[in-house]
Design a binder for these strands. Structure first.
Length: 448
RNA sequence: CGGGGCAUAGCUCAGCCUGGUAGAGCACCUGGUUUGGGACCAGGGGGUCGGGUGUUCGAAUCAUCCUGCCCCGACCA
């Protein structure tokens, strides 16, 4: 992409409505614009990140055997009346009336809908287990939206729903998602920590919030130090195999958010030099709820003995749009955002220090072409801005690598590669710099 | 929903107290000088001062109502 033809409205000053760093940087880097409280438009740069995150989630969910569908944002109130949640959900649910005065709602989640879809498509226990997911916009009319995209009213979420014949089978489905989640976040450069969460009326031990640590996190969390660099399941993990060792390993050490925190237990189980007390951001939540929806919505199949059995279900959410903010909270410095390669809107920022100069124009054009042909996402700053402004903008939007081409370098056959994260600058012969970058970028596309 | 704050140019803000018809920096346009870490000079465009009502000869400024947004709290992926 040529910057001169792109839409990247960057801001030099920080808009005053933004309080936390990710919100400030997303506004400044031209990623989003607020449309109303907790509702955002995604500009080109932000959308690219959103898509990359969604694709990682998609890739890993598919790997774990989940199957993608797409349900609507608008749902009928009837369904929710059947499950009893139409009343329970309260004012957080945005209720709408259509022209025929039918009660509709903008979906805050999809348990009811997916349950009926699955119910109507399956008759036999032989069709189990299944896990269906979609990545769709949700709306929850939060009392007080804040923190930009991290706590918006409209948000993009991946939600998966598992269907099993028994609780035992359901537990296996839960474990698959547990392992998949560790990989999803690790692939974005985030170390997530599964923490025991409130299971609500169902009880049991099958509910975990996946938390990343960040100073601006909204909740206080407590955990064992060793979880912070716990081993991530490998890319070729066999999801049909026994995953309990992985889950056990991750859940054997203490980890809890403040509402589940037990100070006495924490002190007893975790040596004082391993005790971590920090702020955290919830980026995923998985839980098993048995037959809570399958019973009222009559989602049953015939079991081996011919009797109908209500299915055991779980649901598994990832806050896709929230992750954009979450990653920035975890990955920034004074100059701006520092994207991990797998989610970077562009992988390389090519800077022509003297647009209009035949030498740099030619060198940049050929470098751009080679990178693009190799499948690298490149943003080429071919504008007439001064060098300093170009550097500042590139740092702000946080592309992992900057490839700097100036008249002096071209004269010597050299270009400069800057690593955004470390700040290291390296002079590389202009003939080989494209290959060097291609290798470096590709080696970092999947971090685990 | 309770408490607090803000609303003037695309962004950051001054002007308001003490009423006299709107400013700065950055951004943008034109010309020139510049050109390796957010340049400089000159000229220029852009605002029904969030909206209504009232007070007044006259309101960005005073009064009042409304709306929007932000922060703290309870609530949440």
């Amino acid at each position: 992409m040529h910057l001169s033809r792109y839409f990247l409205p960057v801001l030099r000053d920080t808009p005053k409505e933004a309080e936390i760093i990710s919100h400030q940087l997303m506004l400044r880097a031209g990623m989003v614009r607020q449309s109303s409280a907790g509702i955002y438009s995604w500009l080109p740069l932000g959308l690219r990140v959103l898509d990359k995150i969604a694709n990682i989630v998609r890739d890993e969910q598919n790997r774990a055997g989940a199957i993608e569908v797409l349900m609507p944002t608008i749902q009928s109130a009837d369904l929710w009346k059947q499950s009893g949640r139409y009343e329970d959900y309260g004012k957080e649910m945005l209720r709408i009336e259509d022209r025929h005065e039918r009660e509709m709602l903008y979906g805050p989640t999809n348990e009811e809908l997916i349950t009926t879809i699955f119910r109507d498509g399956v008759r036999s226990y032989r069709d189990l287990p299944r896990n269906l997911y979609h990545i769709q916009w949700k709306f929850r009319d939060e009392i007080r939206p804040r923190f930009g995209v991290m706590r918006g009213r409209e948000f993009l979420m991946k939600d998966a729903y598992s269907f099993d014949l028994s609780e035992e089978e359901g537990r296996r489905s839960y474990h698959r998602m547990f392992a998949s989640y560790l990989r999803i976040f690790a692939r974005m450069g985030l170390q997530s920590i599964p923490m025991a969460a409130d299971t609500g009326p169902i009880g049991g031990d099958l509910s975990h919030e996946f938390i990343i640590l960040a100073e601006t996190g909204e909740s206080q969390v407590f955990c064992h130090q060793d979880l912070i660099d716990g081993a991530i399941p490998p890319i070729d993990l066999d999801y049909d195999g026994d995953l309990t060792p992985i889950v056990d390993k991750w859940t054997s050490l203490y980890a809890a958010t403040d509402e589940m925190h037990d100070a006495a237990k924490f002190d007893a189980e975790v040596p004082s030099d391993k005790q971590v007390s920090a702020r955290g951001i919830e980026i995923g939540h998985i839980f098993f709820f048995g037959t809570k929806y399958s019973e009222p919505l009559n989602c049953k199949v015939q079991g081996p003995d011919g009797t109908p059995v209500a299915l055991h279900m779980g649901s598994y959410g990832v806050g896709v749009s929230r992750l954009v903010g979450g990653i920035i909270e975890a990955c920034h410095d004074d100059g701006g955002i520092v994207w991990p390669v797998p989610v970077a809107p562009f992988e390389v920022g090519l800077i022509n220090l003297k647009s209009g100069d035949a030498g740099t124009d030619g060198a940049c054009a050929s470098l751009y072409e080679r990178l693009i042909n190799a499948g690298i996402d490149v943003l080429y700053d071919d504008t007439g801005e001064r060098a300093g402004a170009k550097f500042a903008t590139m740092d702000l939007i946080g592309l992992p690598y900057q490839l700097v081409v100036g008249p002096m370098g071209v004269a010597n056959g050299m270009a400069e590669v800057k690593d955004r994260k470390t700040g290291d600058k390296q002079e590389v012969p202009i003939d080989t710099v494209a290959d060097t970058l291609i290798d470096r970028v590709k080696s970092q596309r999947i971090l685990c």
